[in-house]
């Protein structure tokens, strides 16, 4: 068996490998190269060295501001989404009537596209703010809160599903044992359930973290950075640099590379941090 596998190793992996190379590796390497170039389209690039990277962090680019805004947004979102999702998951594993309906309803927002969601929430938030004679783009705080609301609404259902899966896998005998030992339900939660669902927490943390950090559609549709680019997140900043500045395509590309490095670093750090807390079942 092992031998045949080795024999046909290439035959079976080649198609996938080729697809992976075409769809990911080659564009990635090309993108990396382009970040050192000045170009209008990918075909006519001229090498300029580190110029783009220097410009990317220059004043007037708003890159660092966007980074700060994105970081703040991510921290708030990761905390709120996971807390809410976990709470709902706890409630929905208690055999309440209509559990499946609730699960479905909570999960549904996740099936709606980001742009649609952004415009829908813009209308809803504006409808409320109209009463106070203002709009979502009048103050960056409103935009921030709006984005957090939207993100929670969209992501909570998905995370909830993962947490439910995790909670259902907590062995009942452990919980029973804890109960016999006289643990309160709070102690059971902290000492038994949470350590047992640590792998779910790892996944959820990773998903919320990377999704919040990379948020684009919702940001573009909800505020598009208004007012004065104060609600512009990193991805939108890169997009604006690339498309609405003349001759700044390379700088946009350089920012994208920096963006990739940041996301990869944070994700790896977070993964190793939560992984270490996981328990063997």
């Amino acid at each position: 068996m092992q031998k045949t596998l080795k024999k046909y190793f290439l035959v079976f992996t080649l198609p996938t490998l080729a697809a992976f190379a075409f769809a990911f590796i080659i564009p990635f390497v090309q993108g990396l190269y382009l970040s050192f170039c000045e170009f209008t389209t990918v075909d006519n690039a001229t090498f300029v060295g580190f110029d783009n990277y220097i410009k990317a962090f220059g004043s007037g680019q708003g890159f660092l501001y966007s980074l700060g805004f994105t970081a703040a947004f991510t921290v708030v979102c990761v905390i709120t989404i996971n807390l809410i999702a976990f709470t709902i998951a706890l409630l929905l594993t208690r055999k309440i009537k209509g559990t499946n309906i609730f699960r479905t309803v909570f999960f549904l927002p996740n099936l709606i596209g980001g742009i649609v969601l952004g415009y829908t929430w813009q209308q809803m938030i504006n409808a409320v703010l109209y009463k106070y004679g203002t709009t979502i783009v009048s103050n960056p705080k409103y935009g921030f809160i709006g984005l957090v609301l939207l993100m929670n609404w969209q992501m909570v259902g998905y995370m909830m599903i993962i947490y439910i899966a995790g909670l259902q896998n907590v062995p009942t005998d452990l919980i029973e044992a804890a109960r016999i030992d006289g643990a309160t339900s709070w102690q059971t939660l902290i000492k038994v359930k949470i350590p047992m669902v640590m792998s779910s927490i790892t996944i959820c943390m990773f998903l919320t973290l990377s999704n919040s950090f990379k948020l684009f559609d919702q940001n573009k549709a909800l505020t598009n950075g208004a007012p004065m680019d104060k609600t512009r997140m990193l991805a939108l900043n890169i997009y604006d640099t690339f498309y609405s500045k003349t001759g700044y395509e390379g700088v946009g590309q350089a920012k994208a590379v920096v963006f990739f490095i940041i996301v990869a670093l944070i994700a790896l750090l977070q993964l190793s941090a939560t992984r270490s807390k996981e328990v063997e079942q």
């Binding site: 699960r103 479905t104 599903i161 993962i162 439910i164 899966a165 995790g166 896998n169 792998s199 779910s200």
Partner: peptide, 14 residues
Amino acid sequence: YDIAKSVKECYYEI
């Protein structure tokens, strides 16, 4: 189960 399986199961439920 591993987590991935369970997640799939939840999809089935839905």
